[in-house]
Computed example of a mutant assay.
Amino acid sequence: MSYVFGISSALLVIIAVVVLLRRNSLRERHAIWWMIAGFLALVAGIFPKTLDWLSELLGITVPINLVFFTSIAILFFVSLQNSSELTKLEEKTRKLAERIAIIEMKKPERKE
């Protein structure tokens, strides 16, 4: 039963990302990490022995720790990407505010 829940959740994530992409609510560069997470969860749900094999290969004794590590790593990269985007947007906003201030300083005052 837990495999059905895992597979359903993974499919739900993938479908949600595709719908958001189609509605232009999510950009491709932001969707890539969510798609990776969804596909990894789908593979782990369909082939649960893959998780055991991979954790043994990496020397991780408890396979669920690999799931937690992978999830944290994906969330870290999403956060890093969002921070990078935020920094760029803050810089653009500051430059635009400075340009507007300069333009308004050069305008002659109107008398009413």
Rank of each mutant, 00 (worst) to 15 (best):
L51M: 15
E56N: 15
V43S: 03
F69Q: 09
I14R: 07
L54I: 12
L20V: 05
I64P: 10
I46N: 02
I36G: 04
L58Y: 03
W33V: 08
L21T: 03
A44G: 08
G45H: 04
F77G: 05
W33Y: 15
I102S: 10
S71W: 03
Q81R: 14
M105G: 04
L21N: 06
S84H: 08
K92G: 07
A101M: 09
F69T: 06
M1V: 02
I14V: 13
R94T: 00
G59E: 05
G45A: 00
R94L: 06
I64M: 15
L40D: 06
K88N: 02
R23I: 04
F69V: 10
M1D: 14
M35I: 15
V62Q: 11
I14G: 11
E98W: 09
S8H: 04
V18F: 11
S8T: 14
F76H: 00
T61I: 07
T50N: 02
L96V: 02
L42F: 02
I72Q: 08
S2M: 11
A73P: 00
E90C: 01
N24H: 13
N65F: 09
V4G: 06
A16W: 13
Y3G: 12
L51A: 04
L75D: 06
W34H: 11
S25Q: 14
S2K: 14
I72H: 10
R29E: 10
V78E: 02
V18E: 12
P48W: 01
L12G: 15
P108M: 11
F5Q: 06
Y3W: 13
I103E: 11
R94Q: 00
E91S: 09
E90V: 08
T70N: 00
A16Y: 12
W53I: 12
E91M: 01
E28L: 15
F68T: 12
K49Y: 01
I72T: 05
G6L: 13
S83I: 02
I103N: 04
L11A: 07
V43H: 04
A44H: 01
A10K: 12
M105S: 11
L21Q: 02
T87Q: 14
L26R: 06
I46F: 03
E85H: 02
K95H: 04
L86S: 07
S84N: 11
S83Y: 07
P108A: 12
E109L: 15
L20H: 13
E85S: 07
I7L: 07
M35P: 08
S25P: 07
K88V: 09
L80T: 10
